[in-house]
Write a protein that binds this DNA or RNA. Structure first.
Lengths: 344, 344
DNA sequence: GAAAGCGCGGAAAGCGCTTTCCACCATCGA
DNA sequence: TCGATGGTGGAAAGCGCTTTCCGCGCTTTC
């Protein structure tokens, strides 16, 4: 049914080898005349290479795998978009896998991508702090690399991968310093799940800056939630219920924008004025952060750059080279969701 | 380097055929004893099937292709997520291609997906109204189908594909009726690009409802923009510049939420109160629509359901059956971005 | 009790492509 | 003039898997 390379070769009156050399990029040269004949036959017959066959013969397919927590989350969506742009420019198709930050699913996804013989795997999600979760995944990835696969990570995974490393910790500290500068002293933090390394890094940054100011974060002001709108919402509810009236901290740090969205929603529903009563800040500077009610103060992550760089590292990866690390500074973006506290 | 099926077969003391039948699902049965031996050998050796080889032998790979305009757009991100969920449940990996609503890129993506021998292609983006743009794509898809590929469309494409068909036109009409009911009579519309069928359908719905009320949409109140924040923003700027003071319509319909985001941003920057001075409505009910400033009145599209259904149709597709169409009603969601007009 | 049927394992023929290896021819230097 | 050299085309051997087809040993049927 399909037109094969053999059909093209026959039509052009050349061997399979020659046709392959002309159409599917080879080091070997072919004379212009034959080359032209093959090309025109291919066009005439509507030849489309069989990618699986190519992948089998070459022991590597023209695809790149992207592992992330949730494509529908704008943080990952933006990264996925950049990865697609960069890799499609290199002629690669992207296999995107959403794992919901579930190590089990992530392991399964790694196996699937390995089975597909993708050329590279981009770990766009956070690393896991629990060795029991991270171990099997790293093992599977090691097996993949042993067979020539390339792995690059976005955010630190610490397993010898080429890495795009945004300064989560320093960025969080910078954000806190900005709020301290406005006069805030009593903070609440809605952090991500502790099993995610990124969540821990950001929290550590918050503590760094608080410590510099001689402050600590009281246990009852730290809330742990999934990186989701609902997570932020219920954390905010918990915060309000536990801190009635004047006890409410003056600033709430949601350590991801999506979390901040939930916090803002809960505050809105409960009639808590932001930033009049309490300031709210996020983290990521996701595309819509500036359009929320009110526009969100946050820490800008260069999401597109991160995706692009991850692909660049993956494609540039040399066989035995030392792991590359691209460090990316982060920048605090002040918007209307934060202001000086009314009551100091 | 890699463990092959042959290795497993040898280790288990059976033939390649038997090992294949045990591990990679076949109609033929194998006795429990051999089956167990093969399975345990596979586990012991850490066998991982070579997907491209399987795809070659089976003439179809365990992947599904998704064509959309932009994964970073929450509309498509949500659909992509649902497609991933549904297809991974069926053991398929997803190849996601962002085409930026560019027919040329879309054509190229179709070719790549066909080359990969994906089991199905889900057209998540809008159809093109220009036959010159749609023609080559439909042709390429026809070639793909001729070789056993399955195509399903989200929103009408009208080329005989199984289709998930949300009531764009009726939904837009319903939205306008709701605003008419509030007392609005002077409307402006920020529509999507006319080359996209979805944009035309929604605009047609708007006109339907206006006509019912004996109204028409003045030419200078219709703005065409790319489905993007920036598109909405510059359309809103054009609207404000062309309609100073009392001339400003009382309601602006942005025919996609992302467009509405841009409109709201421009209005905010120019000090136009929403909904006090002008009401704004969107379309799609993207996840963050309720969290905008102000929360957005819009038309809810069941995005997850749409993605899921598209996959269901794809996997259920019978060889010569008539195209299935799943019609989906849409629902108007009233929020704070719309209110009765101050001056009638 | 012979003929027919059935269940199951294995040999082997591909699937469509890449790439090695060899053969050929033309050019070139001595 | 002749072997050496380099460039180029083609034959063929895989890549790892699925699946057809064959044959064996057993049960069923009259």
């Amino acid at each position: 049914m399909a037109v094969t390379l053999g059909d093209v070769a026959r039509h052009a009156g050349v061997s399979l080898a020659t046709a392959s050399r002309v159409l599917n990029g080879s080091a070997r040269t072919v004379t212009d005349e034959l080359s032209a004949r093959v090309r025109s036959s291919a066009r005439e017959l509507g030849y489309l290479p069989n990618a699986p066959a190519q992948a089998l013969a070459r022991a590597s397919s023209a695809t790149i795998g992207v592992l992330l927590h949730d494509v529908a989350d704008p943080y990952f969506g933006t990264i996925a978009r950049a990865v697609w742009d960069a890799s499609s420019q290199a002629g690669l198709l992207s296999l995107v896998a959403s794992t919901d930050a579930d190590p089990e699913r992530e392991l399964h996804a790694v196996r699937m991508l390995h089975a597909q013989r993708v050329r590279a795997i981009v770990l766009a999600g956070s690393a896991y702090t629990d060795p029991a979760a991270a171990g099997p995944i790293d093992e599977a990835l090691a097996g993949y690399r042993a067979q020539g696969g390339v792995v690059t990570a976005i955010t630190d995974h610490g397993s010898g991968y080429d890495t795009v490393s945004p300064a989560n910790r320093a960025g969080a500290a910078e954000l806190v310093r900005a709020l301290l500068g406005m006069g805030h002293r009593r903070f609440a933090v809605v952090g991500g799940p502790g099993r995610l390394r990124v969540a821990q890094e950001r929290l550590a940054g918050v503590r760094d800056a608080l410590a510099e100011a001689g402050l600590t974060l009281p246990q009852e002001c730290l809330f742990e939630a999934d990186f989701s709108r609902e997570g932020g919402r219920s954390a905010a509810a918990g915060l309000l219920d536990g801190h009635p009236g004047e006890l409410l901290p003056t600033a709430v740090l949601a350590l991801s924008d999506i979390l901040a969205v939930g916090v803002l929603a809960e505050f809105r529903d409960r009639g808590i004025d932001v930033p009049g009563r309490v300031s709210v800040a996020g983290f990521d500077d996701v595309p819509l952060a500036a359009d929320l009610a009110p526009p969100l103060t946050t820490v800008r992550m260069p999401l597109e750059l991160m995706g692009r760089e991850a692909v660049r590292l993956a494609l540039a990866a040399a066989p035995g080279a030392a792991p590359q690390v691209v460090a990316l500074p982060l920048e605090v973006v002040l918007r209307a969701s934060t202001a000086a506290p009314a009551r100091p």
